[in-house]
């Protein structure tokens, strides 16, 4: 079991390294745009002799030196029809060595360390995805059980869930934004401005309430998109399990339908849902990108999209690595949950 988990984690870790390497290498192919964006404006350099070609060349060289772009990209390179061996003094080797030590370089745009930027974004993203995941899983658990008991509202709720599943996340988020954070409709929640209001000197209580008010709609939007898949899957699995012989036996013993579901069928029906839970956490990381842009939260997603727009490659690669880490954690979580839910895995024959 431990060996199996270790093997899966190792495979995923290798996959994350491969993806991050590919993004790193591809991004550094064309660094002209990044250089342009990192160059100081001519107006900022009033003290220097700006404008002369020599000075511009010097400024560009300085930027390349600062960003580490003056080194060759990879161990081998090809120029004018010939292959060259560059040795260990290359960008990829430096990046890999520092990344292993936990240093992902500095942002091209702000010169802030990438780790710092990611850590500053996590207090928004982590509660957002975590709460949404818990909320969706809890609601799906409750709803799946009730749906499988065949109440009168089974069909309409199934239809609503299927329709909700069809909507892209940004549409759900926009509908929530326009309905509940819109002065024209209902202005119950603030639409933006979390960063400004937090650093004002306020009591802890009012600061917490501001934070919660800002997080409410994003969490609901994320949970609403995660819910249908989980609930429908659990519902289908439970319906399947309730047709089996052991469920009939349990009913014949005189157990109520709810008890049959809770004590007998639920644990068997949970297994496919657990697989989905492992898929869901990375999907929520992707979804957080959309939600954070719509609700203007300064989290991971906004960091990533801004980095993408500004060609801030170190931040981008750091974000990809972080998303991969989320995937690793999700796999571990799913394996542990399997371990808990299925005794056949716990005691292999």
């Amino acid at each position: 079991m431990v060996k199996w988990i270790g093997f899966r984690m190792l495979r995923t870790a290798i996959a994350v390294w491969a993806i991050a390497s590919v993004v790193f290498l591809l991004s550094r192919q064309d660094t002209a745009r990044a250089e342009q964006l990192a160059l100081p404006d001519a107006t900022d350099l009033s003290g220097y002799a700006v404008g002369t070609p020599v000075a511009r060349q010097a400024a560009r060289e300085a930027v390349r030196q600062r960003l580490g772009l003056n080194l060759p990209l990879f161990y081998i390179s090809r120029a004018a029809g010939k292959w060259y061996w560059n040795g260990l003094q290359n960008q990829y080797h430096h990046w890999l060595r520092r990344a292993v030590q936990g240093d992902f370089g500095q942002s091209f745009r702000t010169s802030q360390p990438v780790t710092e930027a990611l850590l500053a974004a996590l207090p928004y993203s982590l509660p957002l995805t975590g709460t949404a995941l818990l909320l969706a899983a809890g609601a799906a658990l409750a709803m799946g059980q009730r749906l499988a008991a065949r109440p009168r509202w089974q069909q309409p709720v199934r239809t609503i869930l299927a329709a909700l599943q069809a909507l892209p996340l940004f549409v759900v988020a926009l509908i929530l934004l326009l309905a509940f954070a819109n002065p024209e409709m209902l202005a119950w929640f603030p639409a933006y401005g979390l960063t400004q209001s937090v650093d004002v000197e306020l009591s802890v209580w009012s600061r917490t309430s501001t934070y919660l008010m800002h997080m409410a709609l994003p969490v609901i939007a994320l949970a609403l998109t995660a819910l249908p898949e989980l609930a429908l899957q659990l519902d289908a699995a439970l319906t399947e399990e309730l047709r089996t012989d052991y469920a009939t036996t349990a009913r014949a013993k005189g157990l109520a339908e709810g008890v049959v579901i809770r004590r007998h069928a639920l644990r068997n029906a949970l297994l496919p849902t657990l697989t989905q839970l492992a898929e869901l956490l990375p999907a929520l990381v992707g979804g957080a990108v959309v939600v954070e842009v719509v609700f203007a939260l300064p989290g991971m997603g906004r960091l990533l999209t801004e980095a993408a727009a500004a060609r801030d490659y170190p931040v981008l690669v750091g974000g990809v690595l972080l998303a991969g880490t989320a995937r690793l954690l999700a796999l571990l979580l799913a394996d542990l949950l399997y371990f808990w839910a299925d005794p056949r895995i716990r005691w292999p024959s």
């Binding site: 994350v16 993806i19 993004v23 992707g286 959309v290 974000g319 991969g324």
Partner: peptide, 11 residues
């Protein structure tokens, strides 16, 4: 391994 949206944004 990486969510499709994040991958596409990066690429």
């Amino acid at each position: 391994t990486i969510p499709r949206l994040v991958l596409v944004v990066a690429m």
